[in-house]
Each structure stands twice: as C-alpha cells, then as structure tokens.
Design a protein around this nucleic acid. Sequence first.
DNA 1: CTGAAAGCGCTTACAG
DNA 2: CTGAAAGCGCTTACAG
Lengths: 340, 340
Amino acid sequence: MRDETAAKPGRKPRIEDVAALAGTSPMTVSRALRGEGRVSPETLARIHAAVEALGYVPNLSASSLASRRSGILAVLVPTIGNSVFSETVRGVADAAEAAGLHLLIGDYAYSDDKRRQLVRALVGRRPDALVLVGAVQDEAARTLLRQHDDIPVVETWELSDDPVDMAVGFSNFSAGAEVARHLVGGGRRRCAFVGSAESRAAARLAGFTAALAEAGAAPPETETPADLSIEAGRVSLDRLLARAPDLDGVFFATDVMAVGGLLECQRRSIDVPGRIAIVGLGDLEIGRQLRPALTTVRIPAYEMGRRAGELILARLGKGAPPREGRIIDLGFSLVRRQSS
Amino acid sequence: MRDETAAKPGRKPRIEDVAALAGTSPMTVSRALRGEGRVSPETLARIHAAVEALGYVPNLSASSLASRRSGILAVLVPTIGNSVFSETVRGVADAAEAAGLHLLIGDYAYSDDKRRQLVRALVGRRPDALVLVGAVQDEAARTLLRQHDDIPVVETWELSDDPVDMAVGFSNFSAGAEVARHLVGGGRRRCAFVGSAESRAAARLAGFTAALAEAGAAPPETETPADLSIEAGRVSLDRLLARAPDLDGVFFATDVMAVGGLLECQRRSIDVPGRIAIVGLGDLEIGRQLRPALTTVRIPAYEMGRRAGELILARLGKGAPPREGRIIDLGFSLVRRQSS
DNA sequence: CTGAAAGCGCTTACAG
DNA sequence: CTGAAAGCGCTTACAG
C-alpha cells in the first residue's frame, strides 16, 4: 500500500518505549513532554533524543482519557460554506491556537435535526469548551449541555436573555430596526425584506417590521429565497418589484443577496439609490467595491469568535480574567454608503 | 456558575452505571449502543431507557483508545477563510458525515511552520484519516506520515507524482498553460500574472510562462500581492499598467483578485475585453454575475473534497471500492465568458 | 527531581 | 444472546 521500506518494523512506539530508550520512567517522559514539573536537563536531553529516534507522537486519546482534558474546542456552525461564519470560526481558531486547543468542527447544514445529533456527538468527545454559531433553541440540547456543565459553552451571533452558559453577539432585532429607521429617515415609505429561514433573519425582520410600524410606514413585503446566493438576491428583487412596483427600499439579510439586488438594478437600469435604496448586512468586501457602494450593517464576525474564545480561555484559567459578564453585546454599526 | 438545580447530583454516568440501571453488563450496553451484534429487544429497550434516564453520553476518548479507531477525520487547510477551500472542506464533511466521522480542522494560516506542527498534533489524535489542501512538501511531515502508514492520507488541490499516499487534484501547471493559450489565441501579446506566494500559484505561473514562451509571446509581467482580496487585485492591475502600459491580458490566480481587476478597469473606463482581457480562477458566483462576466478556470473544489472523502471511506472499508488508482486528476475547465 | 501503583472509561478477544 | 478478564496508552495522586 505505502512504501513499506520507510516504515518502522514494529508497532507505534508508546511512552514506555521512549522511557526505556531514555533510561527513565514513563512518568518522567510524560512530565518532560508536557513541559510540566522539573526534569533535569540531562534526562530531558535523553528523552528528546529518544522521541526523535523512535518518531514518538503521544496518543492524545489516552492522554485525554487520563487527564480528563481533551484539548479540543468544539465549534458548531450552520455551514462552513458561508464566509461570514468562517470569519467567526477563524476568530475562535486564533484564540484556540494560543491555548493549544484543537478545533473540532460540526457543520449542521442548517438542519435542526443534524444540529441536535452533533451536539450529542461533540459532547461525547468531552471538549474543553463548545462554541456555537446561533443560540441553543432545542430543549433537549439545552438539557444535555446543562448536564455537562463542566463544558463552557458560548453562543454567538445571537443574544438570548437566557443563554445556556455564555453568549457573545449582537441584537439582530436592533439591527433590523436601525435599518428601517435609516430607510424611513431617507424618505422611504414602501420597504421590503429579503431573508432566510433562520432565526437570526427572523429577528432582523421583526426589528425591521417594528420600527417601520413605529414610523408609520407600511409593513414590509418579504421574500424568503431557498439559498443565500447573489442569484437569489436578484430573483427576489424581481419578484418584489412585480408585486410592489412602488417599492423604494429593500433590506437584504445578507450582503451576498444585496449584491444580487444591486446588480439586478444595474441591469434593469433602476436608479439606486434614486428610485430604490438597498441595504445589506455583513460588510463584505464586494459591497464596498461595487458602484454604487453598498450600505450595510457591519457585524463583528471575527470578533465574536475571538471573544468567545477568550471567554473560554478565561474560564479554563488559560487567559486573562473575564472583563465582563456572561453576556457580551458586541453591537453592530450601520455603514452608510451610496446605495441608500 | 451555571444553573446548579438542573445539574444531576453526581458525576457523569459511565457505561457501568447504564448497565447497572438496565440490569445487564457493560459489554452488552457497549454492543447495544454501537448497534453491533445481537442484543435481545427487551435488553435493548431497558438499555435505551437507562441511557435516557441518566443522560448518558459515551466518552469517545475512552472508546477511541480501546478500539484504536478515533472516528476522527483530520483536515489541514491553508485557511478556512478562503471560500474555495471551505468548498473542499464541505466536500470532505459530506463524505465524513455519511460514515459518522467527526471533522478535526487544522488551519495553518499559510505558515509552513504551523503546518508542520499541526501535522504532528493531528497525528497525535490518531485520526482515521487525514486530508490536506495542498501537497506535503515538508520532508519531516512526509516521514511522519509514512511512519503512521495506517492513517490514509489524501492530498488535494495539487498533483505531485509522488504523494505520501493518495491525491485528488488537478494540474495547476496545465491550468496556467491553458489560460496562456487562450489569451494568445485571442491575439494577446503582452500578458501578466497576478499570484500569491503559495506553491499552487507558482505552478500556475510556471505553466502560464511556459505556454507563452511556446507561443512566442513575451514572458509575463508578475505581481504578488500580500493578500488575495479584491483590493489587492485592483492595486495589482494599477501597478501592472504603470509598468507595462501596453498590457493586453491578465491572468489572476483567484477570481477574487480578478474581480478587483475587472472593477478597476470599470472605474478607469478601460475596455474589457477590448483593450485588456481578464481571466480568473475558481468560478465564484460574483464573476458570473458581473458585466462583463469573468472568464475563469473552473476548479472542482467541492468535488476534490468529496472524492478525497470517498477514497478514504473505501480504504476504511466503509464505502464503495476504489474506482481508480491513488492519484486522481479531476481536471479543470476554462469557462469563456465576456472578459476575454 | 523521579517513580510505582492505580485508574481514566471504554472495547477486544475469549468463552459460554 | 451475554459476560468476566484484560488491556488500550496515557496521567493523577502519592511518596520519596
């Protein structure tokens, strides 16, 4: 199968083999390799030589079991395919790396069922901590996580008033409301929302709707495409215009879809922001670069992951002490550009 | 810390506790939970009831250690921040899910040093398999992986003639060459390449250069921006034009940068493809949607991950038998659109 | 600074 | 269909 000549003859070396070759005990090898406790320089040198000679790589399943610390940071995301979520994962990864934790990723493909299964599966790995994109809605999952209350849990991208443990996010409701006020403030009277099936989009719509009502504007038209593509944004804009030709403001739940709306207006020679204002969410680079540049809600995607990681390190005693409580609102900001 | 009243009094239940409550042995519980071997329906029912009652979640570190199978599929990527790579990871994830494997992700942030460390660390988890984005160049890593030859390894995105174990990819050299032929065939005589520091971009440049020479065209101007952003593409185009005002064709190593080139031409009112032809690589949706639509090299990003996963499942005896050898060339295709 | 003993929580290999 | 014994490869908790 693979180059047999390069392979060592026997089975994989264990700590005992290293100890034997270095003329010491497994215990001392264990200490030396973890950099814990005092080990004499000579012993240390012999151990390192033995490790090198044998090509020894400690079995982390065994060390996890014995030490009751897995060194694993589990992350649960709706999909790794969405770049805003991968920004959050990068934030978590950066914090994890600083503490020498490995990232175990669960992608639940937006399926509630898969998410439930994944929570169980990940808990089975006894991770040192768990970060979720999104709040834990599911009662069974909440119970499970409460039961395993030695695992720090951070929910991100959403701020419930009752997180399982900790939360780092922003108010999707407020973001929607701010966009509505911005549009109405710019004289828009007939607005629409293009969202998705997830709870975060629903919260944005709720805030959007509430603020429109408060300002005396009509309730929003809505579109809920099956995916979050540029094409979905284009098609949604077409549909909305067919239903409500007098539309003058559209809030897309993601920048990707908003770019679709922008491009569709360009193709149909619809004046933006003259006739229609367009607002997105996420502050992707493409929105900044297009003309008219896209007005958007900037979300602290990377920062949420990073702070989630820091909260965890603090809890594990590996980082700075926590600066705030268990719920951190990182806020958002409306970035006014040319499209509104 | 967390709602204490909801927590069970004692420590976490073990398989022994489940067995005791169900009135059977740990061995039988183990069998029942793995769905292996025959267990009587009555025993099974009692076991499931006990699991439910105790909130038992098997400790996978223990089962990994005992069974010598971790149920982990390790994936090493240059960065999860790049959407083309996350497509590959999604492909791997889909295959992994079918086999009940968990994804352990190592993001080495394009650092050779981190990559080396991560290979060791991941091997320590004794993954059932390892997928890498990129070939294993490092000799130390190759030796380590050869030593652990019970771990199937698949390299993706690159096709070396001597992979550590298996490889699924395409020829970056050929892709570069094909773009060069396409440009020269369209009458372009003064071409440029905008790349990055990674080996895949270098291979594309090599192919690009070779084919230009073969066609009797001048060697390419090159730019190597520090990041792969749209802005980097814009700036690179500017620099190239400053150096070579007669430039008539640019190949960007990624669609993201190519979009920057396209937008910069738009802003400067440079006719594309009239004065300059622009070609990207990756076939991102934004390139399809812009006008002029971007000519690009379509890469089987998802498919590479998927096939890598399938090769692994075949090797582990969990999937269909392998259809081909250990090196699979998935090819690429030049998608001619309006920008060239 | 070093080590012998016990144990982490499962599964393998036997046996019935 | 079921179970007792041994062991997976480390680290904890003691002791010196």
